[in-house]
Write a protein that binds this DNA or RNA. Sequence first.
DNA 1: CCTTTCATACCGACTGGCTGGCATGTTAGT
DNA 2: ACTAACATGCCAGCCAGTCGGTATGAAAGG
Lengths: 208, 208
Amino acid sequence: MAEEKTSGRRRWPEGYDPQRTRSELVASALRLFEENGFDRTSLQQIVVDANLTKGAFYHHFESKEDLLWRIQTEYLDTQLEGAQAIVEQGGDPIDQVRELIRLSLEGVAQHRPHVAIFQQERRHLTGERLAEITRRRDEVEALFRGAVQAGIDAGRLRGDVSARIVTFGILGMCAWAFQWFNPRGSLSIDDVATQFTAMVLDGLVAGA
Amino acid sequence: MAEEKTSGRRRWPEGYDPQRTRSELVASALRLFEENGFDRTSLQQIVVDANLTKGAFYHHFESKEDLLWRIQTEYLDTQLEGAQAIVEQGGDPIDQVRELIRLSLEGVAQHRPHVAIFQQERRHLTGERLAEITRRRDEVEALFRGAVQAGIDAGRLRGDVSARIVTFGILGMCAWAFQWFNPRGSLSIDDVATQFTAMVLDGLVAGA
DNA sequence: CCTTTCATACCGACTGGCTGGCATGTTAGT
DNA sequence: ACTAACATGCCAGCCAGTCGGTATGAAAGG
């Protein structure tokens, strides 16, 4: 009747990869952070959800905040890459703005948990980790602003507005989409992108 | 050397008002919630900051969540009132949209703590309290959307956009302002309102 | 080929600190 | 006497992080 005391590491299944453990912890955290927030999600919940233990967690991450940080950079890096690709490619600044809006909205639609966590739990980062995230976010914003400013300088966009303010307006529109956009709803993110650009570029007043 | 055992209620200063106690608890919570968030602010911190005790707190509020709820309604009610005043007054729908944007941005500038708490800590409300807040927020949004729709119906705004999407865009722009707008900075909320309406109504593309 | 050593990858019990809430006691006003 | 308006002490529960231990595979030594 001797109970099998499965202490220590469990048997490895074939084709086992330790990175798998890590990414399953991230996946669980992604779900739980999105649903309940960072503070209201305990490590216990995360490791149970991932069928692991605290030992496993602290083997792969320095701390709970470290995990949060990695989730944030994961998302920001893809967005930064995408934005750089659009800008470096050059072309009409108006088209660049259009594409940047689309990129931002697609990010919201395709990476909801990441966006939710980035927007709502960023404040829980501290020190160097916060600085790092803030720096990357600023880079993305700078790319947006650069495109708008280029449009103004080229005379393609009106010159009586501040690139800074206008850029914050556009970014806000896109960021806010995560609050109301339903990926399983009837309208596509493409519709949203089209209408946002129509409003921002051509204005709402009838009869151009 | 007898220590003054200040148990029970303290002496009342002249001109004392129990509502004062209540509003000081709210004031402390406002500061602390804004700075550290709801979960990371303990009741201990709040009552110490207000020079009171937990007994005082639970005399005036049902629970921590109750306090949060009251802060939220406080803000939403003023915004709802303001929006209703603009809409009921009638007039050109374009002007209504303009004024609604201004109202929203002024709210962000003048009631920063309320806005921060409303945006970031709303998720911590549950049950009936959450429903109540959501209902009021929806009312405000409906007033915005109504003005936009009225503009479209009257032919003053272009008809090839969805009032719903466009309204969410405008609301997002304004809501996001709290993330970057600095009340002590060089630009006024009036500048922001002017530029936002210019962009939304007339568009960014040069040469109308 | 066998054995020892070592690093990696975990396990799970534990702890000290903190938290929201409450029961009970005390004082001022009416 | 009664109520409103507090003060104070207390607690059960939870949480992030730690620590000593264990299983596994690979490399090194004999």
